[in-house]
Every structure is written in C-alpha cells, then in structure tokens.
C-alpha cells in the first residue's frame, strides 16, 4: 500500500473512532450544562448497551430488535440512575456530584462484570460482504454503518436542537442555566431527559462498534475518558465543539498510532487534554461566542 492510500485508510479509521468519541462527548456536554454534573459513568452506558445487545442477540432476538431493546433499556437505566442518584443530590456541590458519578461508574462496571464476566462478547457485522475499496483504501462495511449511525444521530439531534421548542429549551439550559431557571424551565425534567438521552446515545454507539471492537465489561472506562477529552477540546459548553473535538481526537489517535507507534494511541488523548488545559482551557470554539 502506498502512503496516500495508507493515509486515506487511517482517515477512515480516525473518522469512525472520532464519531464514537463525538457521540459520547455530545452526551457529556449536554448533560453537564443542563445539570452541572460531569457524568463519568457515561462510558458505562456504552458498555452496558453493547453487552446487553449481544446477550439479547444470543438469546435469539433479531439484530435490529436487540439494538432497539437494548437502547430503550439503557435509556431507562439512565433515567433510573438520574432519579436514584443524581436528583436527590442536585443541591450538592459539583465535587460531590462528580464523586457520585464515579461511584455509579464503578458500580455499573461491577454489575457488568457480575453479569457478563471478563470474556469479550461479540455481535455479527450488520451486513455481510467484503470491504469496499475507496481510492486504494479498503473500508470495512461496519465502518460505514458506524459513520452512518453517527451521522443520522447527529442529524436527528440537530433537528431537535434547532427546530423544536423542547430542543431550544434544552439549548437554553446549556447556554445559561440561571436564565433557563428564570423563564420557568424545570431543571429536574431536563436532567431526566439528558440522562435518558445519554443512555440511549451511549448504548447505540456501543452496539455499533461491537462487531469491530468486541464488547467487554470494562470497555466503558477508556471511552468515557476519551469522550471527556473530546468535550474538553470543544470547551465543555459547546455541543458543536464536542462533536468537532471527538473527530479531532479520533483522527489524531489513529494517525499517531498508525504512523508513529501503536503504543501512542491512548497517550495522545492525555497529551491533547494537557495541552488544551494549558493553552486554551476555554476550548477551541469558545472564541466564536459560545455558539451552541
């Protein structure tokens, strides 16, 4: 393979990985701005969604049904977690709330370990057929499914945020929490919606990557960290920034792993995080006036 097709190949991988980070970051940022909670258990939604779908599929459900049921159940789990652990503590300090989500993350991971054990589980690729050749790069069909799912999810969310009244109310919470309170938006209802939505998005992302990466009980931790780094790149207050941050991180990781050393993959995220915090703590898109 020559260099240009190798670069293209890596670009596809980077976009795929990036789209997953984007979705996780988007869920993190939306939840953070509505509730003030940095949900460190977000990655667990991804893992549980994937594991649950794999079990449902093994139990005989068609793949599409396993997907839908798992997404719905993890959304319900998100809502349950919010009511049981976050809502009662909503008046507490940001630190307390973060510690609660760390606790949630550990408990959910423990639960997954108990139910699924340490062995990876798998799902079949969503469509059969060999890889496509695009400009010298071979593109796995599942990659296209992942990119497509991310694109559809983002498009639907975009319509929700731009065109619906409820979506605008959510954005209002993200832009200015105090003002959202003052116009009478009930933060409890928004918080519930944010956690349920985060659960659904996380589960969907987990299920789509499982045919490529397999699913393990502890896959959520690293994905959560990466989602957080992506959100930090975008600036924590900015939904578009979070999406952009996810793609930037995915592409950086894949290029440094592919061109320099595969050992670098996870280190890149931490280097990027440190660099962002030192050079531009307000995030890449912050200068453009907190566009959401």
């Amino acid at each position: 393979m020559d260099l240009s097709s190798q670069l293209l190949q890596l670009l596809f991988s980077g976009l795929t990985l990036g789209s997953i980070y984007s979705l996780i970051a988007l869920a993190l940022v939306t939840t953070f701005n509505i509730t003030g909670v940095l949900n460190l258990a977000q990655g667990e939604f991804v893992a549980l969604g994937a594991l649950l779908a794999a079990s449902l599929y093994t139990a005989g459900l068609p793949l599409a049904a396993a997907f839908l049921v798992s997404v719905a159940l993890i959304a319900a789990l998100g809502a349950l977690v919010e009511r049981a652990a976050i809502y009662p503590a909503r008046e507490s300090s940001a630190l307390t709330l973060i510690i609660i989500t760390v606790g949630l993350s550990i408990s959910l991971r423990g639960l997954a370990l108990l139910l699924w054990g340490t062995d990876p589980v798998s799902l079949p690729a969503f469509s059969s057929g060999g890889p496509l050749l695009v400009g010298g790069a071979s593109v796995n069909l599942q990659t296209l499914w992942i990119l497509g799912m991310a694109a559809v999810t983002m498009a639907v969310l975009n319509i929700f945020f731009e065109l619906t009244y409820t979506g605008k109310a959510v954005r209002a919470c993200v832009i200015n929490r105090t003002a959202a309170l003052l116009v009478g938006i009930n933060p409890g209802a928004m918080s519930l919606m944010a956690f349920a939505g985060s659960g659904a998005i996380g589960a969907a992302a987990g299920i789509f990557i499982t045919p490529v990466t397999l699913a393990t009980y502890d896959m959520g931790f690293m994905l959560g960290v990466k989602g957080f780094v992506a959100a930090a790149i975008g600036g924590m207050h900015n939904i578009r920034g979070a999406v952009l941050g996810g793609f930037i991180l995915g592409i950086l990781e894949v290029y440094s792993a592919g061109l320099v050393s595969s050992g670098l993959k996870d280190a890149v995220a931490l280097v990027v995080l440190l660099a962002m915090l030192m050079l531009r703590p307000e995030g890449l898109l912050a200068a453009s006036g907190r566009k959401v």
Partner: peptide
C-alpha cells in the same frame, strides 16, 4: 424558580442573561 414563574413572578436579572446564541424570537418564546 419554575414554580414562582407559574405563580406570576418574573425576574429580569442583573446583566440580562439572555440566551445569546438563540434568536430574539426564541428568547421571547422561551
């Protein structure tokens, strides 16, 4: 706060606190 608004108390806060990146119309509708 959302209860107070329903009861008929509305605060126009210090520093305005408008929703910057939403349109004028959306601000009013919200």
């Amino acid at each position: 706060p959302h209860y107070m608004v329903k009861e008929g108390i509305s605060l126009v806060p210090e520093r305005r606190e408008i929703f910057n990146s939403l349109t004028v119309m959306d601000n009013l509708l919200l």
